[in-house]
Design a protein around this nucleic acid. Structure first.
Lengths: 118, 118
DNA sequence: AGTTGACTTAGAGTGCACTCGAAGCGGGAG
DNA sequence: CTCCCGCTTCGAGTGCACTCTAAGTCAACT
């Protein structure tokens, strides 16, 4: 079974562009993806899973800079698990705060909408 | 009673910089703020209220481009109220969707944190 | 009177995260 | 065999939202 995807297919799966996926590789966010005989990227299950998690970090607003620190910790092996966990927990707190802010701001906007009457 | 604030004071109140506040004026996000005898901006109650709402739009992710459309509608008077309301409602839906996305992504991150054990 | 510090303007510069262009290669369809 | 399309690399360009610089003014403090 050959489920390996091309760069465009993988990009589509995560709502990114092929350009962006190559760029992620270029800046070191993901390790170089295995190539086929013609030198083309082939995204296998494991690559897709890594991407899936990274895109979650990204869409929740983690800066690329910090994602780089995370993946570099991961490259160093299991000794860095505590550090990675701490990094994710800090991010989690930021996301929770962001959600709370959005909800508070939304209430103000709702009041404005209401002020326009029906 | 003179409660009018300087540009820095007003900026501090909204977590912006004086530079940003001047830039908002320059690009037309806010009308030129009344000046004192020395030509310095003096933010009165009404100016601060307008800014308070605009910063809510901004922090909820409305692009400056769209905020401009909103304030231009407001300048046109009460005939544009329906359009303004529609614009805010569309934004409201986007913010709700954003919150939902953040919550879904956060769950994935939580699972990852849990996978690192205690 | 002099110094300090916040203000003024116009315009240039920055950081982030892509996004695109150019030039070339390779593999499947007709 | 030829055409076309999607891939390759490298490097330059873009859009957004600020952010800062330079040169100057003005009011208040010492």
């Amino acid at each position: 079974m050959n489920t390996a995807l091309t760069v465009s297919e993988a990009a589509a799966r995560f709502g990114l562009t092929a350009h962006t996926l190559r760029w992620y590789e270029q800046v070191g966010l993901v390790d170089p993806v295995p190539r086929d005989g013609a030198g083309r990227r082939r995204y296998a299950e494991a690559d897709l899973n890594r991407l899936a998690f990274l895109t979650r970090l990204r869409t929740t607003g983690m800066p690329v800079r910090e994602m780089l620190r995370y993946v570099e910790l991961a490259r160093l092996g299991s000794e860095t698990e505590a550090a990675r966990r701490a990094l994710l927990e800090a991010h989690r707190r930021r996301v929770l705060a962001r959600i709370a802010d959005l909800e508070a701001d939304l209430e103000v906007i709702d009041r404005k909408i209401a002020s326009y009457g029906s």
